[in-house]
Nucleic acid binder design. Structure first.
Lengths: 330, 330
DNA sequence: TTGTATGCGTTATCAG
DNA sequence: CTGATAACGCATACAA
């Protein structure tokens, strides 16, 4: 049965109850109403099977209680987890989530920004690396992991601190020669600070290190293979510790190393970044720097719904922690 | 800057262009309008920076172009993938997705059904095992993996066929004594047919088998440990093939078996169900019966948006296929 | 406290 | 083909 129009409205309820329309509205919204009136209204509502219809309120007040979330996808477990926590955080504050997936298509992103403006959402939470994102006026926008300008609040994990932590951990676990591997976009995103933190800590501790960073859009992952091959000596890797930009890439690298006969974690210990768990709820896929996903979600929601949106901090950084998977010897 | 009310409306554009309101509406909606009028309107729109506001249309036509998707979570990679494909399928048909996550909380589910009705969505796609789901009148509802009644279309993978396929594969791979392990709810859901298909095929082929099925809500996973222990003889499992209800559980069982010294796939081959890939885009986590997630998503969307919703088939079953992960010897 | 009346932005009907 | 106008369901300012 295709949605039939025209159930009872507040006006019908008012007539049925013998009260004014405004009184019905006040009862429905929980505003103070005299007890006898309230009862009459509730009885009429029950008799008629009245159901509140929010479209009237939206038109009148321009508040949809809906927040748009713009995300590349929900197949990547990190994004899946993030979407999950954002949805829950919104639910706690009685807001709904309009989910928009971009698959990293910039044109689609632009359309979506346009679309959600037409739809009149109360705010936008966006995780996108689009360099020329058209920031909408009039609608609060919060980004995750990508800083645009001081007027657009950005929420991110402490990527720099995570890099430092990874270096410290590897050293603590006995590594004497380490490397950082990463594939990233060309843009200056927050996750790039993982390298900065790692390098900084290695220098500080006097831990010898190398860096292999490729550009996601143009370089092939074969470059990693080559890098690894170049650093093999007598069947062993010349590093005993690796820090890798994401858990996903770490998994790929580990597969490659194992196929080359390198034993992990016996010969080489590996730490990834993100904190991805198997099937979302089992053990960590690799030893990792865990992003505080729930906190990032909470902060994003709190920020985008903030009453004083214009005075909100422009960059919020949240603490990470280390967790062991099976790829370190702790 | 909190959303300011009152950008220009169609009425403003009409005044600016010196035409009638209706003409503006027709131009905006791409309906036939005389060329000179059209130009005047478009010019006025550009001058004023007019932007379409859908809330007026929603109130007037009761069409939101939005479909609610009710899902347990997006942390489980299967649900993450499903949500992803549903969102894309909706996008192709120019619809948006209101995502509602239940975390299997029945009370929350009820609230959400209520809420989306107030919000006036055009349809609902729901994956829930809630036995007493209040089916909303007036709004097309499609379920995934759970059959309610002939009036509520259900979309599901060919679970029975998948069970058959798993049995055939194990036999083809040389297994001579197999078992099926599963944890499921008590309700009669579509995925339960995995067992039926498996059993049926084993009987048909004369392949000796056992079944261990526990109830998710009350039994502990320890029961699986016990089952496995009971079927060890001289350090080897008495089965050489296992079919397990989900990839997630298969992963757990495999870990357990390996910790018991059982080699996989050398001694025991394992096939799961769902088709979960590492990090959403890498290799299959285990050898598996792959659900046609994209097709399930497409079918759900097509069905819920169907013009003739009442004449739509009440159960749509979509074909699965086998894919090798690392847990079989093929 | 309760009633009345207006308007939110759009679509659609009906005349011109 | 275009113009004028009445809804759509609700919130709210204002009057009683």
């Amino acid at each position: 049965m295709p949605k039939e129009r025209g159930g009872p409205t507040m006006a019908d309820v008012a007539k049925e109850a013998g009260v004014a329309l405004g009184t019905v509205s006040r009862v429905v919204n929980g505003e103070p109403v005299g007890e006898p009136f309230k009862e009459k209204v509730l009885a009429a509502i029950a008799r008629l099977g009245y159901r509140y219809n929010s479209s009237g309120r939206v038109l009148r007040t321009d508040e949809t209680n809906t927040v748009a979330v713009i995300m590349p996808n929900t197949e990547n477990p990190f994004f899946g987890e993030l979407v999950h926590h954002i949805c829950m955080a919104l639910g706690k504050r009685n807001r709904r989530m309009l989910l928009c997936l971009t698959e990293n298509d910039r044109e689609r992103e632009t359309e979506m920004i346009q679309m959600v403006q037409e739809n009149g959402v109360d705010g936008i939470i966006s995780l996108t690396y689009n360099p020329d994102l058209a920031v909408p006026e009039n609608i609060p926008l919060v980004t995750i992991d990508r800083f645009f300008s001081v007027s657009v609040p950005c929420i991110a994990a402490d990527n720099f601190g995570g890099g430092v932590l990874a270096a410290q951990k590897l050293r603590e676990l006995g590594c004497t020669r380490v490397a950082f591997l990463r594939a990233a976009s060309e843009l200056p995103t927050e996750p790039k600070k993982r390298k900065d933190g790692f390098v900084s800590a290695c220098v500080e501790m006097g831990l010898p290190f190398e860096v292999k960073a490729i550009v996601e859009e143009k370089d092939s992952f074969d470059e990693f293979d080559q890098f690894l091959q170049e650093h093999m000596e007598g069947g062993r890797l010349t590093f005993d510790g690796l820090f890798i930009g994401t858990d996903s890439l770490a998994w790929l690298i580990i597969k490659k190393l194992r196929s080359m006969g390198v034993r992990i974690p016996e010969e080489v210990q590996v730490i990834g970044f993100d904190g991805i768990r198997m099937f979302g709820n089992q053990e960590y896929a690799v030893s990792t720097i865990v992003q505080p996903v729930a906190e990032i979600a909470e902060a994003s929601v709190n920020t985008v719904l903030s009453r004083h949106f214009s005075t909100v901090p422009s960059l919020i950084t949240l603490p990470v922690h280390y967790a062991k998977g099976g790829t370190t010897r702790d």
